[in-house]
Amino acid sequence: MDRKLEIIQCARELIEERGLAKTSVAAIAERMNVARTLFYHYFPSKEDLVAAVLDTYVDEFIASLKEWNSQRVEGDIEGALDTIVALIRDQLFDNDNAHKPFRRALATHENASLYLRFINRVADASATYIVETTVADFGRLHKVRIDHVYETFYMLILGIVGYMRQHPEASDDVLKDIIAQTLHFEREREQSHHTA
């Protein structure tokens, strides 16, 4: 592993252990047993390093999103809704997930700014990926019934994650309804209700 990646990994571990405020350049240098000048060789500021750490988590979330997208079954909107809600719960909220310390760190008041930066990066990367892949696939077969597609997905992701963070007891069905209504999809259970 190169030195830059080692610094990012060390900072990630310290943020998870101590929180953002207690993760200083001096603490990173001490943990790595290197001079602080090495840190500044790779990162002009702590803020630049925090951005790099957040990018590692965002990259992991996008990798999960890519896996979800590759397993979608064309035309199975209900299945896609089931699996996307499960993915969000697992990656961002499941306490048994490997990222539990990071999520715990994000939940503290001290790290509110870290949470905001993280969720905005997740929303941007996810919306960009979904528009370029999932929406493009859907658009080849159906009319996309929303305007401002990127912006809608960005706001949907921010809203769903924020809502789930504030209301962890929210049912999957409510979350799927919110997603489907925002994107103007009719859920299968609604279709059978209308035809009955």
Rank of each mutant, 00 (worst) to 15 (best):
S171G: 15
E47A: 15
N33H: 11
A29P: 02
E190R: 10
H41N: 10
N95P: 08
Y42V: 08
I157Q: 05
G139Y: 04
K46F: 06
P44M: 06
A107L: 07
A180C: 01
R121C: 00
A26D: 10
S171H: 07
G139R: 01
L87T: 07
I119N: 00
I62K: 06
Y154L: 07
E78C: 01
T108G: 07
I7G: 00
S64A: 15
H194D: 11
A105M: 00
R145N: 12
E190T: 10
V131C: 04
S192G: 04
L175R: 05
T108N: 05
Y150F: 15
D96Y: 12
V53G: 02
K143A: 07
V135E: 03
H109Q: 15
L183Y: 05
F39Y: 04
R187F: 04
R140K: 13
D172A: 15
V73C: 02
F118C: 14
T152C: 04
M155K: 14
N69E: 12
D137I: 00
A80F: 08
L14Q: 07
E13L: 10
W68E: 04
Y42P: 02
I160D: 03
G159P: 02
Q9R: 11
P44I: 10
E16H: 00
G75M: 00
I28A: 01
E16S: 14
D82K: 10
R145Q: 11
G79A: 05
L81R: 03
H109R: 15
A125Q: 09
A107W: 01
S70G: 04
P101W: 04
N111K: 00
V122S: 05
L81K: 02
E132K: 13
A170W: 01
P168I: 07
A107T: 10
E78W: 12
I88M: 15
E67D: 14
L81A: 02
L49H: 00
D59T: 11
N111L: 05
L175C: 07
D90N: 12
R104T: 13
I28W: 00
I7M: 01
E67F: 11
M32R: 07
L158N: 08
N120S: 10
I160K: 01
V131I: 09
I179R: 03
T128H: 08
L38T: 14
N97I: 06
A136N: 10
Q71E: 12
S126P: 02
L141Q: 13
R103D: 09
A112Q: 14
L5D: 15
I77Y: 07
M32D: 03
V73A: 09
A170D: 04
L87I: 04
T23A: 00
Y115G: 03
R145V: 05
F102L: 09
T128F: 08
P44K: 13
D173N: 13
E13W: 03
E190W: 14
D96F: 09
L156N: 05
A27P: 02
A80E: 10
E169M: 04
A107K: 11
T195R: 12
E110Q: 11
R12A: 08
E6G: 13
V58E: 06
L49N: 09
E47G: 12
A27H: 03
T56C: 05
Q166E: 15
I8N: 07
R145E: 13
A29H: 07
H109F: 09
A125T: 00
A27D: 12
L81H: 05
S64Y: 09
V135I: 08
D177T: 14
D2R: 08
